[in-house]
Design a binder for these strands. Structure first.
Lengths: 369, 369
DNA sequence: CGTTCATTTGAATCGCCGT
DNA sequence: TACGGCGATTCAAATGAAC
């Protein structure tokens, strides 16, 4: 199905399919450490109150319902604990998870995430541009939902496409509050009666931002509460593999039909802006070795206040310091650190040119090979 | 001090004063069911490691106070349980409480509130208009804090001044996300050395909205983590009675001095929360996220001479350049700058349409609220 | 006195790699 | 695993000096 080779002899994942059943059982049947990202939109209205029994079958005091509350929360916490435990097992060591909820359940989810050792990366507010108003005027308009983005452990190195999200935000750093419209119009799936197919269908724009920001093409994205398959739809468009789990046949049918129509964007469109951190490292010594700068040549600081001389081994010597381009730059500025590549300049034709230009030349030569 | 007659023979409350000591002990010494509103801004339990420097090498003045240090989540939960229990006892049956926090602590607070039988009315997002950025580009900008607004019980009938908040919001229903600036400038209190008197002083505009919305004149407002007394200052301006509890002598001194200067019904203070409405900036990435243009789709320049392809992160790729709609437009025209919104066009029904039309659609959706 | 520009600052879980 | 070197990384708002 995919051309990717799986590590070791792990059982093959059921990629790009919708699995029928309880998500806890299904996740427990999948190989551990095999999934890159989980997006989870669990139910919060479990309607557990009808099933409640006190151990001694005594009647619940109608005046003080605290006990009732507690029992209901306890059931919900058990459910949350169970599915998060199953989810955590199948996540790769550097895997990450997003959960979404409202004030009814999100605090309990956040607490359980922390208790299990997930590491919170950000909480993100989906600020709805067109929320349902509060008709009775009894409360504030509930105009947002909360997402919690976690990595499997504190030590994990989850995918974060910083530059791509920055580009999505027209050049400024993406914030933790996202203004996006709710799912309406053509995007909102209808059943045969013409009613909405699912009560809480999420907009594709929300998943687009999540997946562009925290996955790469070819990653495996699992959604344990698949519903009508928004996660799968956006994953497919973006060239990620998806696994959906959904126990309601009606939702599975809608999702299957939806996904069959989705086409992947072409590869060029899927490339996103890369961080400089992904570029190969170039030692400054190479600049000297290649004769782009000559030993003995002077470099000037970006502000023009400091001067240093290039030595044959690729180190610099200034009035009060010697060492790497970074060390001497930091010493000149009396700063804790310094990027020597952008700090130091050389002169050509009377102009000051950053030495970073030379590094870019070397890198483009490296790419040509 | 006040003309209100207290019910029954309850001991008099220490109104409009700052109490010295641990808030749990002090609250336990106050009469039960005597306070209308509690605003609580407890330590967030930030878990900061080393120092952090900005790209310009200046050092970030972080919250490193002893009062924010906890050994473990367990210890923090014990602390939270204790102060919330004490707070609940002194609340009137129809009383309410606001707590504020970040992702470090807010989930644990929300869980404890629910466990104790508090009833969540709304969670409210304070969207900071000028947050501190993420300097290392490792995460999303942490641009918000979360407040949880609860009543003492599910049966409580807490004060909610719907019309007043609607008026504050230019005539439309107040939403659960509040855009307000952080506390800076003259409002930010300084100590004698000229440094900030408290690391986490809240803006008066935030408390103004809280107190206008959920208290009436003459109500008793208690703040167990008083700090430099923003809650007391706004309560006094608005004609509410305050009780502050603060165990740090330095903060008490600053608050006392501050409160002495406050006058009730200061019109200038009432204007604080009025926000000016500017044309919102719309990143081109939102057009892509919302599916108004699809990754891979072609755009044409206004003169028809250049073509570019849309990528998933909202950047364009043309024959010789890639980047934002503005950058690629400028490159195509070999111009220093270019307004991509009017330069680039897409095709619909054989006609060329400027992408600015899509931006106008998004803006009109945003205005609709 | 108004405009412009440089400087400062804010609740922050803020790196990766090789030795 | 602790340490040190490389080298990547910031936005909005307010202040205050300069013009």
């Amino acid at each position: 199905m995919t051309k990717k080779t799986k590590e070791a002899a792990a059982p093959a994942l059921p990629l790009n399919s919708i699995l029928d059943g309880d998500c806890i059982d299904i996740m427990n049947s999948l190989p551990e450490c095999s999934v890159d990202l989980i997006f989870a939109d669990p139910p919060y209205n479990l309607q557990l109150k009808g099933e409640l029994h006190r151990p001694d079958n005594s009647k619940v005091d109608a005046v003080d319902n605290d006990w009732d509350q507690f029992e209901s929360f306890k059931r919900y916490d058990e459910f949350t604990h169970a599915w998060m435990t199953a989810a955590r097992r199948i996540l790769k060591p550097n895997g990450a998870m997003w959960v979404i909820g409202s004030y009814h359940n999100v605090f309990r989810m956040g607490t359980e995430l922390q208790n299990q050792g997930f590491w919170i990366l950000n909480d993100v507010i989906w600020r709805k541009s067109n929320p349902m108003p509060n008709f009775r005027g009894m409360r504030l308009t509930n105009a947002h939902e909360t997402m919690i983005w976690v990595s499997k452990t504190e030590k994990s190195k989850p995918t974060f496409n910083y530059e791509a999200l920055k580009a999505l935000n027209e050049g400024t750093q993406m914030r933790s509050d996202w203004v996006l419209p709710i799912c309406t119009g053509h995007e909102r799936l209808k059943n045969e009666a013409g009613d909405k197919a699912h009560p809480t269908q999420k907009p594709e724009s929300l998943l687009h931002r999540v997946l562009v920001g925290s996955t790469n093409p070819g990653d495996v994205v699992l959604d344990p509460f698949f519903g009508t398959g928004t996660t799968g739809a956006v994953a497919k468009m973006l060239g990620r593999d998806y696994i959906g789990i959904e126990r309601e046949a009606e939702y599975r049918a809608v999702a299957k039909k939806r996904l069959a129509k989705i086409r992947k964007f072409d590869n060029e469109a899927l490339e996103v802006s890369q961080s400089k951190r992904a570029e190969p490292r170039v030692p400054f010594g190479q600049v000297v070795e290649r004769g782009m700068l000559r030993p003995g040549e002077d470099l000037w600081s970006v502000n023009g206040r400091h001067k240093a001389k290039v030595r044959a081994d690729g180190t610099l010597i200034a009035a009060d310091s010697k060492g790497s381009i970074h060390q001497v730059g930091a010493a000149c500025e009396n700063a804790p650190s310094c990027n020597g590549w952008t700090y130091w300049h050389y002169r050509r034709d009377g102009k000051k040119v950053p030495i970073d230009l030379l590094r870019q030349q070397i890198r483009s030569e490296m790419r040509a090979n």
